[in-house]
Simulated assay, not measured.
Amino acid sequence: MSAAEVASAVAAGVRAVVPDAHVSELPMADGGEGTLDALLAVWGVPARDVVTVDAIGRPRTARYGVSPDGRLGVVELAEASGLPHVSDVAPQPLRAHTRGTGEVAAAVLDAGVDEVLVCLGGSASTDGGSGILTGLGVRLLDDRGEPVPDGGEGLARVAHLDLAGLHPRARDVSWRLAVDVTNPLHGERGAAHVFGPQKGAAPADVAFLDDALQRWAGLLEREAGVAVAHVPGAGAAGGVPAGLVAVLGAQLEPGARLVADAIGLRDALERADLVITGEGSFDSQSVEGKVADAVGALAAQAPHRPPVVVLAGRVLLPAERARAAGIAAAFSIAPGPVELEELMGRTRPRLTDLAATVTSLVLASRPHLPPAPVEPSDDARERSSA
């Protein structure tokens, strides 16, 4: 379900208990998939299309956005280089790349923007941002002066950066990178070890990619004079920030906070009695820059600190860590042992039922707001009859 669909399902659960409740539905994103749509919705402008390639070089049409005043361009990495677009073939963890995203970024520069926001997340590759640089005209050369292959495979051989063909506007604009993690570029918490297996990398591939990223960091420091290896968040999206920080002077920003500012979340929290947010798997990564983390932190800053409740597919984070992140409670939509396909097929009604339950619990502590009688949902009737 999209963020907007989840928000709608949760709102239905709240209104089932309090029919006249004022519910603000604010679809969120954390810098990954969905960030472009969230910003386009706020701006009220359509997406633009560009023909590019996917993470393994096949033709693909990707979307990007430009703000109404024409000053800010938005590139969502998952549009061109996302993992879902190459899920129809066997994973290629060493060859997958972000060159298509670089070509989208070039189109944004051609549109005349002054600032480029690159939304990271959902990538299929571990290439340290080398593909984006290639798409912008940079040549990655080996020690014989020959171009290296795309992807992490090429990082193990690159010896020199040729910037002569870099897009003429690439260094005239400001670059911001929306990230949802704080992982460094390489090492045990780096891009290859933490995220590589999700992209099909076997243990040997992980070791190869980690060494390649370390080599890449050394090259960037020698040729661009920028140390990127231990920059928090440099490991996002397969290490994309490394190349863009070193060559383009890009700045990293928490993606969830960026979207929160764009949609006016802070103002909404100041008016809220209850805040419900969501996550697929509510675990340790959820409180390291993702949506739940941002919502919890901002709610804690609101004058009356409204309680924040997380609804998730599964809940793995200990309660004390959740509370430390400003989350009052977290609940799984799974009613008990259940197959994943069945749970996915019932996501919307389970979200609605669980939101109604949470609302009733909050009302129980606030007797001045009595709940209205509620007709059980079809999902609830099934459990009751069973």
Rank of each mutant, 00 (worst) to 15 (best):
346 R>H: 11
101 T>M: 07
279 E>P: 13
129 G>H: 09
181 V>H: 02
369 L>M: 13
24 S>G: 02
207 A>W: 01
74 V>W: 05
193 H>W: 04
2 S>M: 07
14 V>L: 06
69 D>C: 14
266 R>M: 00
381 R>T: 06
177 L>C: 04
46 P>I: 08
139 R>I: 02
55 A>M: 10
145 G>M: 11
41 A>P: 03
162 D>M: 10
259 V>Q: 02
68 P>S: 08
10 V>Q: 02
305 R>V: 15
364 A>W: 06
124 A>D: 09
354 L>C: 11
141 L>G: 08
135 G>H: 14
43 W>S: 11
187 G>L: 06
248 L>F: 08
207 A>V: 15
65 G>W: 04
95 R>F: 01
199 K>M: 09
342 E>H: 13
147 P>N: 09
26 L>S: 00
315 V>Y: 06
109 L>W: 10
58 R>Y: 07
183 N>G: 12
154 G>L: 11
170 A>V: 07
131 G>Q: 05
375 E>H: 12
56 I>M: 03
132 I>N: 02
356 A>E: 05
16 A>F: 03
28 M>R: 00
189 R>A: 09
174 S>I: 05
170 A>H: 08
354 L>E: 05
33 E>W: 02
165 G>P: 11
63 R>W: 12
364 A>K: 09
297 A>P: 00
191 A>W: 02
322 A>G: 15
269 L>V: 01
239 G>R: 02
312 A>Y: 07
318 P>M: 12
208 F>T: 03
241 P>Q: 08
333 I>P: 01
363 L>T: 10
2 S>R: 15
307 P>Q: 02
384 S>L: 15
59 P>R: 14
290 K>L: 04
